[in-house]
Write a protein that binds this DNA or RNA. Sequence first.
DNA 1: ACCACTGGTTCCCAATGGATACTACGATGG
DNA 2: CCATCGTAGTATCCATTGGGAACCAGTGGT
Lengths: 128, 128
Amino acid sequence: MAPTSCGRTHDVYDSSCPCRHMLDLLANKWSALALGALEDGPRRFGALRSKLDGVSPKVLTATLRRLEEHGLIDRTVYPAVPLHVEYSLTPLGRDACEPLALLRRWVVDNIERFPQAVLSDPRASVAP
Amino acid sequence: MAPTSCGRTHDVYDSSCPCRHMLDLLANKWSALALGALEDGPRRFGALRSKLDGVSPKVLTATLRRLEEHGLIDRTVYPAVPLHVEYSLTPLGRDACEPLALLRRWVVDNIERFPQAVLSDPRASVAP
DNA sequence: ACCACTGGTTCCCAATGGATACTACGATGG
DNA sequence: CCATCGTAGTATCCATTGGGAACCAGTGGT
């Protein structure tokens, strides 16, 4: 498997391993997009909201809070005239961006190879 | 962005782009684990169920069906004495494994860097 | 007849996701 | 003085999904 410095073996396939929890955090549409959106500098809530087309404020807040709790992003409040809040990557978050960027990139580069039927209708699999 | 052969630009940040839908499929805990579990050869339902520690049969079925519909895995039924079903990667699925393997790998390699508090309790963020 | 094995399905409930509306705060402006 | 705007979210409601446990079908074994 992949032994780590603490001496234990960590395994994403083990449901009781912390790795599983972290995979659950990162292997998530909105997390992957939010971290990617911060790759080229800090962004404010509103900017993220427009960049992550289709996200609702509730879900965006939840995603950002979760990423913050896990040390992937920082949340900085500027109590200026119109209050604004900036989100930025921590070093850990920046590192996490690498595999996520590769995944996003892979999807874009290989999108043509997927069955067309299922691409056109997001809910093609839901039969009445 | 990343223009593709069809002439359109594809963008995972655009909610109406098929890419978004595919990212949603791949940026998912169970998908990432299931594809990884098939990397070194076909596996049967029961084998996947044990490998993906903690998955319920319902969710595993749904995950596998979705991956099959999207052309990432094949489902082969052997109507032999004790019926068995084998799941295997398609070429597309095999290619998709690369970025997913990097992500799983990154998590395992960097797990020690995450805040310990949040690692120990998967639901630390859930207040009364 | 009964149990075990394999590969699921069904049922039910809790958690999550998503859309829409609303709040808090100070600034601006009539 | 009250109304309105921009910013960053909450609140509320409902649909979808995730998850656990039980159950089912087909066959072989005892």
